[in-house]
C-alpha cells in the first residue's frame, strides 16, 4: 500500500529537520530516517548534511540466524550502554515479504524493555536488497550525526546484503545458538569471516559447549577472521544467556575493548575507509544498474532486430557495454 502524505515531509526543509535532529529532537530523527529509507535526491541531501558530522559513534553490527535471540541480546546490550551513560540507537532490520513488499516488524518489543534513552528504528528490507545497502549506511549516518552512540545494526544473517551491511560495522558480532547446527550455518553464510566477536547464546542449553567447540575448530581451520588483524588471534567467543542476562556484561566489555583496540592500533581508520568504500561501491552499483536498465529499455529490442539469431547473449551485452561507456551508436 503506497501513500502520499510523506511527500509533504520530503518537501519540508531538510536542513531545518537536521538542526532539530542534531539538537536532540527524536521526532526529527524519525522523520530523517524515513527520508533516507525513501531514497533518491532527498536522501542524498540528508547524506550531504550528515557526512561532516559523523565518525563519533561506535557502530556495532549484530547478526545471526533467525531465532538466535538477537533482539533480546540487543535489548540487554543497550541496557549496559545506558548504564555506562551512553545514548544508544538501534537499527533493527527484518525482511519484507517478497510477494507484497509489506513486513511485520516485531523486534523492538524485545529490545525496548525499560531502555528509555535508546532510539529504536524498525527497518524492512523493502524487497530490493540494493535499497538496504544504501539505506542502512544512510540511517547509521543520521544516528551518528544526531549524537547517538553506540549505533547497533541488527540483521538476520541470511542474505548477502545483510551480511555486508553488518560487516561494515566497527565491531561485528555473530550470534549462534546451541542445538540448531548454527556454527555450520554461520560458516556457510560467510559469517565466520566477518566476525570480530562470536556469541553463543542460550548458554544454559546442553548443546552450548558443542557449538563453542565447533566454532573453535572452524576458526582454527579457516584463519580468516576479522579479529585476527586486530588482536592477532582468533575472534573471542562469549557465552551469554539473553533470558537471565548471564554473560552480557562480559560481552559488552568485549565489544568496547574491541573498539578501544581499533582506536589504539589505528585500525579504525582502515575500517572506516573500508566502510566508505563499500557504501560508494553500493551507490555506484545502484547507479550502474539504473543506467543498464535504462539502456536495455532504450536499445535492447532494436539491437536484437539488428542482429541475427546466432548472436550470443555475451555479444549483446558487450555491445551494450560499449554503448554505455562510448555513448549511443549514432548510425542506429
Amino acid at each position: 500500500m503506497r501513500q502520499s502524505n510523506k511527500i509533504k515531509h520530503r518537501n519540508s526543509d531538510i536542513g531545518e529537520l537536521f538542526e532539530r535532529a542534531t539538537s536532540g529532537e527524536r521526532r526529527a530523527v524519525g522523520r530523517l530516517l524515513s527520508i533516507v529509507e525513501g531514497g533518491g535526491a532527498p536522501a542524498d541531501q540528508v547524506a550531504r548534511l550528515g557526512h561532516p558530522l559523523v565518525g563519533r559513534a561506535h557502530v556495532i553490527g549484530i547478526t545471526g540466524p533467525p531465532g538466535a535471540g538477537k533482539s533480546t541480546l540487543v535489548g540487554k546490550l543497550v541496557s549496559e550502554a545506558e548504564k555506562a551513560g551512553k545514548r544508544p540507537a538501534v537499527l533493527a532490520v527484518d525482511p519484507s515479504s517478497p510477494l507484497t513488499g509489506g513486513a511485520i516488524l516485531g523486534d523492538r518489543v524485545r529490545i525496548d524493555a525499560n531502555n528509555v534513552n535508546t532510539f529504536i528504528r524498525s527497518v524492512a528490507t523493502r524487497g530490493h536488497s540494493g535499497g538496504l545497502a544504501l539505506s542502512v549506511p544512510g540511517s547509521v549516518r543520521v544516528f551518528d550525526a544526531s549524537g547517538f552512540d553506540p549505533v547497533i545494526v541488527e540483521t538476520v544473517g541470511v542474505g548477502q546484503v545483510e551480511v555486508d551491511v553488518t560487516a561494515t560495522a566497527d565491531t561485528t558480532v555473530v550470534v549462534a545458538n546451541p542445538g540448531t547446527g548454527d556454527a555450520v550455518q554461520a560458516n556457510k553464510a560467510g559469517l565466520l569471516e566477518v566476525a570480530d566477536i562470536f556469541v553463543v547464546n542460550k548458554s544454559d542449553h546442553s548443546g552450548a559447549n558443542d557449538v563453542r567447540r565447533d566454532l573453535e575448530i572452524m576458526l582454527d581451520l579457516s584463519h580468516a577472521t576479522g579479529a585476527e588483524d586486530v588482536a592477532g588471534g582468533r575472534a573471542p567467543i562469549v557465552m551469554t544467556n539473553s533470558l537471565d542476562g548471564d554473560g552480557i556484561a562480559e560481552l559488552w566489555t568485549t565489544i568496547t575493548e574491541h573498539y578501544e583496540h581499533l582506536v589504539e592500533s589505528d585500525r579504525l581508520v582502515g575500517r572506516r575507509s573500508h566502510r566508505l568504500k563499500t557504501e560508494v561501491r553500493s551507490r555506484l552499483l545502484t547507479g550502474l544498474e539504473g543506467m543498464a536498465d535504462h539502456l536495455l529499455a532504450q536499445r535492447f529490442e532494436a539491437l536484437r532486430r539488428a542482429s541475427d539469431e546466432s548472436t550470443a547473449p555475451s555479444e549483446l551485452s558487450e555491445q551494450l557495454l560499449v554503448e554505455l561507456f562510448a555513448g549511443p551508436n549514432v548510425d542506429d
Partner: peptide, 16 residues
C-alpha cells in the same frame, strides 16, 4: 490485521 496489512504492502510495527 498485522498480516492483512503486511499483505497489503504496509510495514507493520507490531507492539502487541
Amino acid at each position: 490485521v498485522a498480516r492483512i496489512l503486511r499483505d497489503a504492502g504496509c510495514e507493520v510495527i507490531y507492539l502487541g
